[in-house]
Nucleic acid binder design. Structure first.
Lengths: 255, 255
DNA sequence: GTAATAGTGTCTCTTAGACAATATGCC
DNA sequence: GGCATATTGTCTAAGAGACACTATTAC
């Protein structure tokens, strides 16, 4: 004997998912790393129309069909992580939602929404998966707000926004640690900041601020050995609000 | 005589927009104002399942069908502006994309993506459109990170994120001006900051910073008259990079 | 010891907060 | 002139940059 349905159950049972036209939903990931003293971004060559043969950000449609053989994404972030893993083999990157781009014109096929993420990974963790998707993937050097290539869709805009966001965050947060290996010296961290900010930083002031920000912990007994005096290794201290770096605010909160 | 098609044109001509299942795409807007010395957010009562009768953020599906009688949204931002105008009658709010929420579970009807925006409007510009959508709309006082009501969907999370973002921006940017009328005195601006930050600010220091930030321009010859000494009226100076307020960075750029 | 880098100490200048002093308009 | 608010000025303390000094290791 069937249970009596509530009005809500009845409503849901007869709901038509395709009553209205829907936009297509993609996830694109701006993947940054630093290699050879340069900020790099990963791009893939498109194998299909539109923009066939042009370079584009790695990404694709969100998989919302639970019965699909291509896999199922429970959340947008899961879709981004899947794309990122497919391209780089990295499973736990620094991943942050950047912005969502949606309009009738950005893709000639359809009204399209693209949820863009940006990721930071240490170059020592990457294994580029050549052949996945049968598409070529390459690291491009970031210059100012982009790369020296035409990009598909509005990916030039997305990339510029990602670079702007990265530079802004570097100025007042500790995100840069995610571009370094697990363990690093303070000098290496400073070099990373100098590279990203295109500026020279004072050693003493830099160390003072990093230590006061309280986001690093020394790895006991571990040092980077070299030709000269060895340096203490540090790692990023994962705590709740560790992202804010140079806390300078309009308000001074009572202790 | 038909022109010969390129491969790309042929590809697009036979492209099937509904080859794959798509998520539903909604736009939700967190609309803030300040009235009676309190930060308020606009919520609407849902007239339909699911969550019928519960309060929710104003929003709805993006209109992607150019032939629909309900209107057509060219971009996501246009959809957000449409929702906001329908509810408040305000045409040029401060509007900023907040974040996009998407998962298989957040709406029982479908795999759903919601692009959330947050808006700031001065309470003197609002005309609440009672009756639009036949739904009740009300302003709720913000307390800590939410309101004293259950909200539909994951709107509690979205609202909390919006409040967090607003508070963070207030600390180092000039966004608070968008909650005031076009013209305002420095004391009024200071009160707005104090209200939002829940802190007392020093008059002299506040004025110095605001002036150094160079984002206000005096409205010549206009003053707020009252029982005592009149105050100079200011307006927000719209320039390119006027949003950054207290520029304190890791780097000191060369002049 | 020397070379070269790691790590620390100190001086000064800037800036923000505290608070006082002055200015203005209405009664 | 008195009141209440607007607006400006000055003192001081904290923090950041500049720069020099000490520490440590390999050779």
């Amino acid at each position: 004997m069937p249970k009596r349905q509530t009005t809500e159950q009845a409503f849901l049972a007869q709901y038509d998912r395709d009553r209205y036209a829907k936009p297509a939903v993609m996830v694109d990931v701006v993947i940054f790393t630093v290699r050879d003293e340069r900020l790099k971004v990963l791009l893939v060559k498109r194998g299909e129309h539109p923009f066939r043969g042009q370079w584009a950000l790695p990404g694709g449609a969100v998989h919302v069909d639970p019965d699909s053989a291509a896999g199922f994404d429970r959340t947008l972030e899961a879709a981004a992580l899947r794309e990122l893993y497919e391209e780089t083999g990295v499973k736990s990157p620094y991943l942050e939602q950047l912005k969502t781009y949606g309009s009738a014109e950005r893709d000639p096929r359809d009204w399209t929404v693209s949820v863009a993420y940006f990721a930071l990974i240490s170059s020592d963790r990457i294994e580029l998966r050549h052949g996945t998707d049968a598409a070529e993937a390459r690291w491009f050097t970031v210059q100012k707000l982009g790369v020296k290539h035409r990009l598909a869709f509005d990916h030039k805009t997305i990339l510029a926004d990602a670079i702007t966001r990265l530079r802004a965050k570097v100025e007042y947060t500790a995100v840069a640690v995610h571009l370094l290996p697990e363990e690093f010296t303070l000098t290496e961290l400073q070099h990373m900041y100098e590279l990203l900010l295109q500026a020279t930083l004072d050693k003493s002031a830099f160390r003072r601020r990093v230590k006061e920000a309280n986001m690093l912990e020394p790895v006991k007994g571990k040092r980077r050995e070299g030709q000269f005096r060895p340096a203490q290794l540090y790692r990023f201290a994962r705590r709740a609000d560790m992202d804010l770096f140079f806390p300078r605010s309009l308000v001074r909160y009572a202790k």
